[in-house]
Design a protein around this nucleic acid. Structure first.
Length: 656
RNA sequence: GUCCCGGUAGCUCAGCCGGAUAGAGCAGCUGACUUCUAAUCAGCAGGUCACAGGUUCGAAUCCUGUCCGGGAUGCCA
């Protein structure tokens, strides 16, 4: 049992008979932020004032009187308005350290009541290359799955692939009209990618031409509005002036955005028209939008030819994304894409209808839900189904197959309304016992504060992103080795370190951020050697390995041994306390599904280690007890870091 | 229009289910490598936690309003 749980148990008996539901108060016991307030503090006397009456210091005194923590702590102290400060006895810390040291799982017991959890994440569209937008869902979902599994839950990870949408209509259309037979025979994946981009380019061009007049008119109108607003602002006096200036600024910005939008449209058009071949292509395929939709509809309707092509293309498309997953070390238990649910969409709507949940509105089948202005449309006027329908069918399938307690959807925040409706609909459909959670996250931004794009305005491919991270990591490795003459790394090892550090840095940059906020992408920041970065966390791990190697320490014997241990420096004690909080941190992560809490913890623990390392010589410790204690801290540190990083989906390097 | 999310140091961000003097990193300044890897450490400086009210013994954290930014908003996913 971890420290906190033991303290809580002691307080639970102290509160017995005093309050009805002690749980809320037990959560008010937490690590102190300042050592002078002890190791842990209980903040429950103040809020108990409204329950028990009297003044909080007296309440605290009463609780302390009933409290028996003598096996764990020095006598508790009451401070300030009624804080109860607890200082753990060194022998207790040492004993718990020993328990963790001996245990494969660092003393962390599996949860008493395991749940079945489905984690739905990544879910790229297989017809197009993965891009930067997929990184967050993939990395956050993978980490949450690993943490849940480590804690002892039954976890099913599912990649709900987009393998049935319009993008396949595009590829099929491209294949029928634009394919290069020999290129397809030689390298099908590349050729399909080219076809997708080709069709996309034609469609984009045609859309740009169509939208141009409207965009021109809008830009013109907004420019005029901005000019008017600027004039008004210049003329305004007194209290009106500030407001007018604000209006002018906003109008100017809107005008600027419209101008950019217009410029981007013109650029697309110019790009196509600059090439006679591209222009001719665009002219030849004047009806491309409708034709693509027709190909998609034919696929869905069971057209034999399109179905055959789809089956032929699918493995190639999956191959492309599989390569990325392998590099990221991401695996799924299931990859049931949209196509898997296609056969059941009709009966899903029928079942909803049978239960009286569906109403016709303008020819569309709609589920109207309390608290929402607009309904959830489950079948379009033209008879086609939507992702809402697929998502409902998916819930039903998952319940009948795995009977989960909880289902997490790791999907970006823009879809929060969709999920709010989906969850509400699932509830009225009869799945009220199943807990559904949208684990949402923000956008990856460029350093200009806008969604991360290449200089030419395209989305950034994920593969290129990985390559760049590794290349830059390699530069850091080489740079560092120049400074350390006594370290020798051959080419293979350098490259392997670069791969681990680069990919790890990319993942860590994402996971160390609170998922709900947008985050600014920066190679320089993620690969920085100091601060909350992957390289900083990996370093202590390698350092400890260095100590064990140089001292020829037998780690197994250390773990099993029973030599005396004791603290002489505050850095040792602080590091030990932090190491013992690992379990609580993992449990905290699963309260609001925040992997950044684990990242922050690992940063804190490695920072504490760096301070310890600076201050306390391990191999040349003053005596045997100190040496054993310090080696134990080192070993626990490296295993905690390795486990913690593994739970974030990040690998370690033995030396760097 | 309605709904959702955000506004914390020059920059990037933690902290937000109320707790003791608001924390990191970067950038700036000062120190520390004959010592287990300096991919490090120690220190200085830097903040009306957007604004105004409210609840509370106590508010960056909860409530209300205002301003600013982003997003969503019936037949795409």
């Amino acid at each position: 049992m971890n420290v906190l749980a033991r303290l809580q148990a002691a307080f639970r008996s102290a509160l017995d008979g005093l309050v009805d539901s002690p749980s809320t108060y037990l959560e008010m016991i937490r690590p102190s932020q300042d050592p002078k307030f002890g190791d842990y503090q209980a903040n429950l006397a103040m809020p108990l004032k409204s329950v028990l009456g009297g003044n909080p210091r007296d309440i605290a005194a009463k609780i302390v009187e009933r409290l028996d923590v003598s096996a764990l702590c020095d006598p508790p102290e009451i401070a300030g308005p009624g804080f109860i400060n607890l200082r753990l006895r060194d022998e207790v810390i040492v004993e718990m350290l020993r328990t963790a040291l001996r245990d494969e799982r660092l003393g962390i017991a599996p949860v008493a009541e395991p749940k079945t959890v489905i984690v739905d994440f990544s879910s790229p569209n297989v017809a197009k290359p993965m891009h930067v937008g997929h990184i967050r869902s993939t990395v956050i979902g993978d980490s949450l799955s690993r943490i849940l599994r480590f804690l002892g839950h039954r976890v099913i990870t599912d990649n709900h692939l987009g393998d049935w949408g319009t993008q396949f209509g595009m590829i099929i259309y491209g294949f029928k009209h634009l394919r290069d037979e020999s290129a397809y025979a030689a390298a099908p994946v590349a050729e399909l990618g080219r076809l997708y981009r080709q069709v996309r380019a034609i469609m984009d061009y045609r859309a740009a031409v169509r939208e141009l007049p409207k965009a021109e008119a809008e830009a013109k109108q907004l420019a005029a509005a901005a000019a008017t607003a600027a004039a008004l602002a210049a003329a305004a006096q007194g209290p009106e002036a500030k407001k007018a200036a604000g209006d002018a600024k906003r109008a100017a910005r809107r005008s600027e955005e419209a101008a950019e939008q217009l410029a981007s449209l013109r650029e697309k058009i110019a790009k196509t028209e600059a090439s006679p071949a591209a222009s001719a292509l665009a002219a030849q395929h004047a009806d491309i939008e409708r034709a693509v939709l027709d190909e998609t509809a034919a696929l869905h309707a069971g057209d034999a030819e399109n179905r055959r092509l789809w089956e032929e293309f699918l493995p190639y498309c999956r191959e492309d994304i599989q390569r990325i997953y392998e590099r990221l070390a991401i695996r799924f238990d299931e990859e049931l894409g949209e196509s898997f649910y296609h056969p059941w969409l009709g009966e899903t709507v029928d079942d909803l209808t049978k239960r009286g949940l569906v109403r016709d509105s303008d020819g569309a089948a709609c589920v109207f839900l309390d608290g929402f202005d607009s309904p959830m449309i489950v079948r379009k006027r033209d008879g086609a189904y939507l992702y809402a329908t697929t998502d409902l069918a998916t819930i039903r399938y998952r319940v009948s197959t795995w009977n989960p307690d909880l289902c997490l959807y790791v999907v970006d925040h823009r879809q929060s309304e969709h999920f709010a409706k989906l969850f509400a609909a699932a509830k009225v459909w009869g799945f009220e016992k199943l807990e559904l959670r949208h684990v949402s996250f923000g956008t990856v931004m460029g350093d200009d504060g806008r969604p991360f794009k290449t200089r030419s305005g395209d989305t950034v491919g994920l593969e290129g992103l990985l390559d760049e991270a590794v290349t830059r990591a390699r530069a850091v490795v080489d740079e560092n080795l120049k400074k350390n003459a006594d370290l020798e790394f051959d080419e293979t090892e350098r490259q392997r370190i670069a791969e681990t550090v680069g990919i790890g840095a990319l993942k860590y940059a994402d996971l160390s951020q609170n998922r709900s906020s947008d985050y600014v992408f920066s190679y320089d920041k993620m690969l920085a050697l100091k601060g909350n970065t992957a390289p900083y966390l990996l370093y202590p791990y390698a350092r400890v390995n260095g100590i064990f190697a140089r001292g020829e320490v037998d780690a197994e014997a250390l773990r099993r041994g029973d030599r005396a241990m004791a603290f002489v420096a505050p850095e040792e004690r602080r590091l030990a306390l932090l190491l013992l909080q690992f379990e609580n941190v993992l449990l905290d992560v699963t309260v609001d599904w925040l992997p950044n809490l684990l990242a922050a913890y690992l940063y804190e623990v490695t920072t504490a280690f760096s301070q310890f390392y600076e201050r306390c010589s391990v191999l040349d410790a003053p005596d045997e007890t100190s040496r054993t204690t310090r080696l134990a801290l080192c070993d626990l540190l490296r295993r905690t870091v390795r486990t913690g990083l593994d739970l974030l989906g990040i690998g370690v390097v033995e030396r760097m």
